[in-house]
Design a binder for these strands. Structure first.
Length: 692
RNA sequence: GGCGGUGUAGCUCAGUCGGUUAGAGCAGCGGAAUCAUAAUCCGCGUGUCGGGGGUUCGAAUCCCUCCACCGCUACCA
């Protein structure tokens, strides 16, 4: 097979937080792939970097009273250590705040300018005078200009779905400082992506760079997205600048403006490669401007469109290689649910490492991952069972039960007749390789385990423990164990991309390092066997539980540092308040505008076709009723609501909804979905009474 | 509502360019073994392959339709 040149990247982790087991789904699968390619003898290089720019970093640095540079340096050191300890091996790990990246941003920007893709527009943006910064949409909250719902983010209303600019919000508030933002006009630079529409159609819809479901998604949502008239909508201009102050690179030909973090982040892939080339004497063009070099990106489904529309557009315009393949993966769930801080399933990489061997997670992820965009689930119970059964029970056990019989004699001089076992496993190598190549790791693991399932019965049938009782059987004993150990070695080679440590230990046991996939095709014979040492401990459930507990505690500690003064006996967490900061001060008159009344639910019914709504008939007493649609279906059953008292906003302007007229609101707390909590007045309150 | 996905043994899933009695691992039950990190081996599955209809000599596999769940999107709280 001819040697391929392959450049691989994982998405750049943001320098605003720790690496957790969700991130690792990506870095581990990329590492498997890179190690596989290297083991196959290809020239494969794995590039990554910390993504360091943007408002969030700027704000956090300010909060922590240190410079952005200090912050990102500290976080990067932590990231690199976490990755290294999980066995993730980058050829270069850089930072988007590097001179190489600045230089490449300049160059690519110049190309985009020359191609006539840049246009300037004035944008009204809110500015926080207290924090001294422009506010991204999500840092502004206020009342929706369309439906008057309070507490809406700056880009669209959760309640009525209207989209608007933050400047249109009524009574906007900065979530950073609580100050009232000022509207300021600022010049922004845009890339007219529409000019590349034809290219993107072509690139995304033909060729095999994208998984089919991704190509389809892009087609449906962007490339052939239709407007009301059924016309294909143009691709929207991409706002790629932010006015000062902003932590990032200043745009050379537009002083006072900085590149938006999503402009310079992917360029970090190239910059990291450049850094590596400079360090090792390579030539960047061999990797990024070379049809004979493959470029593979691994990333999560949340950042699909940056990498499948903007990024190829930028590369194309600047004359760099287009991605050969964009490998998009799903998210991690734990026991079937989103990772949860309060449940302790939001596990940081470091917390995991304190209790468990990284090999466990590497193998478990490998056994779950396919080349689909599907989410994968880490079931704690399955995790423990699978790792212990497969790795300890089947694989390592093979060495453990045969190696010690060879300590004195070493491996037989000639590979004995094993009834075709070794050859069978050797022949299966191609199929396993195809599975690895296509990122179908779960299939690769299945195939490998099927070999372990053939090897163990061999040992069973040939009973080395009986052979050793009679010196006359010495040769047979050596032969049987030579076979068992060679079958084990094949497994270790096939598993090497996933379990590099095991491969290393196997190399040490047999005195010959595992460096190439093809070693699995030829038995090792006539060499000494070192003393067998345990290669992998089984997972203890107590350690897993300790990890979960510690993750819970970290969450509490984190919440405590955010809310410094928790002095009451209940010590309620500050999460809810932090998620939804207090609204702007209002007067008693403002409050009196809202007429809150005690009401009784006299009827409650499901609304067919509505996913979240219940239809309520509220009585204010005296025969006065209001019909209200409330989004509480997920939390309450209609039968249980009938008869109970609630608090309602009685003078809310009626709103015509799809299912009928809604004449008020029912007061409830909670983040939504299944977590909605209706308010109930204390006993004695009567329908119709006003709240003061 | 739109787009997409999924639905196969208690659990996790494989199998699907139509073709012998539908598979594996785990769990469970029974037995064996005791070299090995209480690891291993042998045996045990009457599963409406989500429901219904169709095409076909033949469908888990193709087509239609319905249902359930998930994701995105819209509408909506």
């Amino acid at each position: 097979m001819s040697q391929r040149r392959i450049l691989v990247t994982s998405a750049l982790p943001y320098a605003n937080g720790s690496i957790h087991i969700g991130h690792l789904v990506e870095y581990l699968q990329t590492d498997f792939w890179v190690r596989f390619q290297k083991l196959r003898g290809h020239e494969c290089r794995y590039m990554c970097a910390d993504d360091t720019h943007g408002t969030a970093i700027m704000i956090r640095a300010k909060q922590e009273g240190r410079s952005e540079e200090e912050l990102i340096a500290a976080v990067q050191a932590e990231h690199e250590q976490d990755f290294a300890d999980f066995g993730i091996e980058f050829d270069n790990y850089s930072s988007t705040n590097s001179p190489e990246n600045r230089e490449l941003c300049n160059e690519i920007w110049e190309s985009i300018r020359q191609a006539g893709l840049v246009k300037e527009k004035n944008v009204e943006q809110l500015f926080d005078p207290e924090a001294g910064t422009f506010l991204a949409d999500r840092f502004v909250k206020g009342t929706c200009p369309k439906c008057n719902s309070p507490d809406q983010y700056g880009d669209n209303c959760d309640k009525c779905g209207a989209t608007y600019s933050p400047a249109e919000l009524i009574d906007p508030v900065s979530t950073l400082s609580g100050a009232t933002p000022e509207v300021r006009n600022a010049l922004h630079l845009f890339i007219e992506l529409e000019q590349l529409h034809g290219f993107l159609d072509e690139w995304t819809q033909s060729g095999d760079a994208l998984q089919p479901e991704i190509a389809n998604y892009l087609k449906g949502h962007f490339l052939e997205s239709k407007d009301d008239q059924g016309e294909i909508e143009p691709l929207r201009d991409w706002d790629i600048s932010r006015p000062a102050p902003y932590f990032g690179f200043e745009i050379p030909d537009s002083p006072g403006n900085y590149w938006y973090v999503w402009f310079d982040a992917p360029i970090g892939y190239i910059a990291s490669t450049k850094q590596w080339c400079d360090r090792t004497g390579g030539n960047l063009n061999d990797w990024w401007r070379n049809d004979d070099c493959e470029v593979h990106h691994f990333l999560g489904k949340d950042i699909t469109y940056f990498h499948t529309l903007f990024w190829p557009g930028m590369l194309k315009t600047a004359g760099y290689s287009l991605p050969t393949k964009v490998h998009i993966h799903g998210f991690l769930t734990v026991d079937g649910e989103k990772m949860s801080k309060s449940k302790g399933t939001f596990v940081n990489a470091r917390t995991y490492l304190k209790q468990l061997d990284p090999a466990y997670l590497r193998y478990f992820y490998a056994s779950k991952l396919s080349n689909k965009v599907d989410d994968i689930d880490l079931s704690i119970e399955e995790f423990i069972a699978k790792v212990n059964t497969d790795l300890v029970g089947k694989v390592v056990n093979l060495a453990s039960r045969s190696a010690k019989f060879l300590a004195k004699t070493g491996l037989s001089e000639k590979y004995p007749d094993d009834g075709g076992l070794f050859e069978y496993a050797s022949n299966l190598g191609d199929e396993i390789a195809v599975a690895y190549e296509s990122c179908n790791y779960s299939q690769a693991m299945r195939l490998i385990m099927s070999l372990a399932d053939r090897a163990n019965p061999f040992v069973e049938d040939n009973k080395p423990w009986e052979l050793r009782k009679d010196p006359e059987n010495a040769q047979r004993l050596q032969d049987v164990c030579t076979i068992a150990l060679n079958l084990f070695r094949q497994l270790a080679i096939y598993l090497a991309p996933v379990l590099p440590k095991l491969a290393e230990q196997t190399g040490e046991l047999l005195g010959e390092p595992i460096t190439h996939w093809d070693q699995a095709a030829k038995p090792q014979v006539g060499t000494p066997v070192n003393k067998f040492k345990h290669m992998l401990q089984r997972i203890e459930e107590t350690k897993v539980n300790a990890m979960i507990e510690e993750s819970k505690e970290e969450n509490v500690a984190e919440a405590a540092t955010e809310q410094v003064t928790v002095t009451d006996a209940w010590a309620d967490g500050g999460e809810a308040l932090a998620n939804e900061p207090l609204a702007e001060e209002c007067t008693i008159d403002d409050f009196m505008k809202v007429d809150l009344r005690v009401a009784r639910i006299v009827e409650a019914a499901e609304v067919p076709d509505a996913r979240k709504l219940l239809k309520l008939k509220l009585s204010l007493g005296g025969g006065v009723y209001k019909q209200v649609f409330a989004g509480i279906k997920a939390a309450y059953e209609p039968e249980k609501l009938t008869g109970r008292l609630v608090v309602c906003v009685a003078n809310l302007k009626p709103r015509q909804m799809k299912f009928g007229l809604s004449e008020g609101m029912v007061a409830a707390a909670g983040p939504g979905g299944g977590e909605v909590y209706l308010l109930t007045p204390d006993e004695g309150a009567k329908p119709g009474q006003r709240l003061h």
